[in-house]
Amino acid sequence: MESAALLNAIIENAIDGIITINDRGLIESINPPACRLFQYKPAEVTGKNISILMPPPHREQHDEYIRRYQQTGRGHIIGIGREVTGLRKDGTLFPFRLAVSEVKYSGRIIYTGFIHDLSREKEAEDRLKEYAAHLKDEVEERTQSLMLSVKELEKAKDEVSISLEKEKELGQLKSRFVSMASHEFRTPLSAVQLSASLIEKYAGQSQSKNISKHVGKIKNAVGNLTTILNDFLSHEKLEAGRVEPSPTVFDLVKLAEEITEEMQLMAKKDQNIIYLHTGSNSKVNLDLNLLKNCIINLIANAIKYSGENTFIEFNTELSKSGCTITVKDNGIGIPDTDQKHLFEAFFRAHNTGNIPGTGLGLHIVARYVRLMNGNVTFKSSINKGTLFTISFPEQ
């Protein structure tokens, strides 16, 4: 009696549902978990055929399953972990795992079914499938979007390549044109310059002030045109990467004195260039031509943007810290709003008025100085002048 009571307590308190049927398929017992699963009270199913808990077509076939098993010992009735579908009292279906055992008890055969509800597992599985399907759709959508982006990028790449090729061709044509134009203009300009000098010479003592005046205008115009052509040619060489510094050791003071003498001839009336060198040494290791171009450009600007009866201070200094070159004028100065653009190509300050220029000179100076590993800075105030400083580190 104690064993029977213990067995009954285990069955009643089991987590899974347990149903027993006889050899005719009639329900003999059902525990509370099974009642909750199928929504029946024990009295509503006890003594009835187990097929009441089965949906079609298994309901109609269940008795045949039992008969076949009893005759052959094979069939669907005995099994471990089969997934089947149950029919609740309200007509809804639910999945469960069924394990059936054959038990001989008191000289008769009883079949015991162990029922494990799979509703939550199936719901989770369905959600997982939905999520997987959603991910698959999203991956396909993003893959298509990525493929479209790749095609657009390839198309853009082809367009950019074509544009770059065209730009390269235009750049080469422009460079060739500027070089050709510069050289072609120089020949007639040289002839005009020479002719103006000969007119001045042949006029001799009999020349009038008007002849001298107009010859001077011709020379100035030729000089301005030559400067413009040189600026354009230098800029094109820089853009094409054809300017490579060639450092040599030379006498900086000698170069500065030559430049001072040369530029003094271009100065306005009563403009004076005052040169001063500081330091016991005068030798530097730089590109002579590039440095000469930079100094001439700065002094030419000082002459151009300063008035008559002014001084232009030109200084060089060699010390342990390196080489410093300064050019200071008392001219029109550079507006504060223009100073950040001063070294940009083709930029001219707004207060230059009708003073001729290309806007390339300071851009070329900055590029040449950088090529020689130097630095160029300036300080300027309106109507008080400008100070340019070129510095090179110790060599």
Rank of each mutant, 00 (worst) to 15 (best):
R142L: 15
S195K: 15
N281D: 06
K209Y: 08
T20P: 13
K283E: 06
S280I: 03
N281R: 14
D251P: 06
V376E: 01
A124N: 11
N210G: 07
D270F: 11
E60P: 07
M1R: 12
K304T: 02
M263H: 02
N373R: 09
N210C: 01
L135A: 08
L170N: 11
S208M: 07
E394T: 09
R348D: 02
K174T: 09
E258F: 06
P393M: 07
P335E: 14
D270K: 13
P55F: 09
V139L: 13
I11Y: 08
N230E: 11
H350S: 15
A9M: 10
S391Q: 13
M147W: 04
E140W: 08
E184D: 04
L93D: 03
S280Q: 10
K213Q: 14
Q144Y: 06
N49P: 15
K219N: 05
I295Y: 01
H76A: 05
I50Q: 07
V376C: 03
K151P: 01
E200V: 04
H116C: 11
S206M: 14
A345T: 06
L7I: 11
Y305Q: 01
R97L: 11
T324M: 08
K168F: 04
M263R: 01
S182M: 08
C323V: 04
L128A: 10
G86Y: 04
L87H: 10
E12H: 12
E239S: 13
L37T: 03
K168H: 07
Y40W: 07
I312P: 01
Q339N: 00
A4N: 05
Y40C: 02
S380T: 11
I19G: 06
E159H: 04
S212C: 03
A240S: 15
N281P: 01
A221N: 15
T358I: 00
V365W: 00
A267W: 01
L298S: 01
L255C: 02
Y105E: 13
I162M: 08
F314R: 03
I390R: 00
A133V: 15
L146P: 04
P33F: 03
N224T: 14
Q395E: 07
V150F: 04
E257G: 04
K384C: 05
V150K: 08
I162G: 04
K104C: 08
A34M: 07
K219R: 12
P55V: 09
F232I: 09
E159A: 06
V45N: 06
G75L: 02
G86A: 05
A133C: 13
K268M: 10
T358L: 02
G91V: 14
T72G: 13
N285I: 08
L128C: 07
G353K: 11
P247G: 12
F347D: 06
G75I: 02
Q61S: 10
L170I: 11
L291I: 13
N297A: 07
Y305C: 00
E12R: 11
Y368I: 05
L252E: 03
R120W: 08
R127S: 08
D137G: 07
A256K: 09
S212Y: 01
E130A: 15
N383H: 08
F250Y: 09
M147F: 03
S101E: 10
L291Y: 03
T358K: 01
K379Q: 09
N13Q: 05
V100A: 05
A156H: 12
S190W: 11
T227R: 09
F347C: 09
S282Y: 00
H277V: 01
R24F: 14
